[in-house]
Design a protein around this nucleic acid. Structure first.
Lengths: 141, 141
DNA sequence: AATAATTCCTAGTAATTATATAGGATTATT
DNA sequence: AATAATCCTATATAATTACTAGGAATTATT
């Protein structure tokens, strides 16, 4: 019941892009250095974010990545699901038929509740919210 | 981000024991048949529940398992953690030092919120609640 | 005392997933 | 033409998952 490093690194990458939004494209090299992840591994994670339509890439020299939408339109739920797959703690939540008991199983209902609770947290937080939290954390006091 | 079969089967096993509480000890054979799991696999899951103090075993012929406490005193959170380990979606939630960034990382806060949401659902549901839900589901209407 | 039915314990194993690394192809600026 | 970036595909390794197997220990019944 852990998120994979893909989700952790990928979410941090999205946050990094959000914080550098209104500047020139962010090079993978810089992103990797700031986040403490290898370029090669990030390179493998990024396509999922691109396919999901969250980021745009610019190739060639002076290339890099930028957000493809406003940070306020991207929910953390979407990011993590793009990287991790469904966040249902058991398969019967997404596919009731997957388990023949699901219709008459009380645990099924609880797993559904768990899923909803995760949805509410991650679905209620946008990348803009996350960036704001980050700025608050980094702010000198 | 899935529960293991240990958690799914183990929780169902606990529910089964709760539903057969005030009768003679439940044999693993019967439990396994009703839940559609092999005896051998359940045999491997059960010790975690016993070590956690949730069930009691009676050895020898006519042996089996019973709950060791009232169903109302056992939270699903405790059961799943006994079977699954910590439900924190990332290690930095339990061990902030595990990631050097945790003190200044906004994602850390969100992962903490996710953990809390799961805690609230699973910590707010006892085995007695689950059994009641199950009875309601099985009830003829 | 023997038998049978149960839990208990330890080890093994095949498949999958996680976490990367490697090498080179493609693209665009200068 | 050179350079610096993204893109694509393959490979490696370690850990985890989901079991299975075999037999030892225990206890009620006969």
């Amino acid at each position: 019941m852990k998120f994979s490093t893909r989700s952790r690194y990928g979410t941090r990458a999205m946050l990094d892009l959000a914080l550098h939004d209104n500047s020139s494209p962010v090079r993978l090299k810089d992103l990797a250095r700031r986040q403490g992840v290898s370029v090669k591994y990030l390179e493998q994670i990024i396509p999922a974010l691109k396919n999901a339509g969250f980021i745009r890439s610019i190739r060639g020299i002076n290339g890099g990545y930028t957000l493809a939408k406003g940070a306020g339109e991207i929910r953390l739920l979407d990011i993590v699901e793009a990287l991790e797959g469904s966040l249902s703690p058991v398969d019967c939540v997404d596919m009731p038929k997957w388990c023949p008991r699901s219709g008459e199983c009380a645990t099924h209902e609880v797993w559904r509740d768990v899923r909803k609770a995760i949805d509410d947290v991650l679905g209620g937080t946008t990348l803009a919210d996350l960036a704001e939290r980050q700025r608050a954390l980094s702010e000198p006091r």
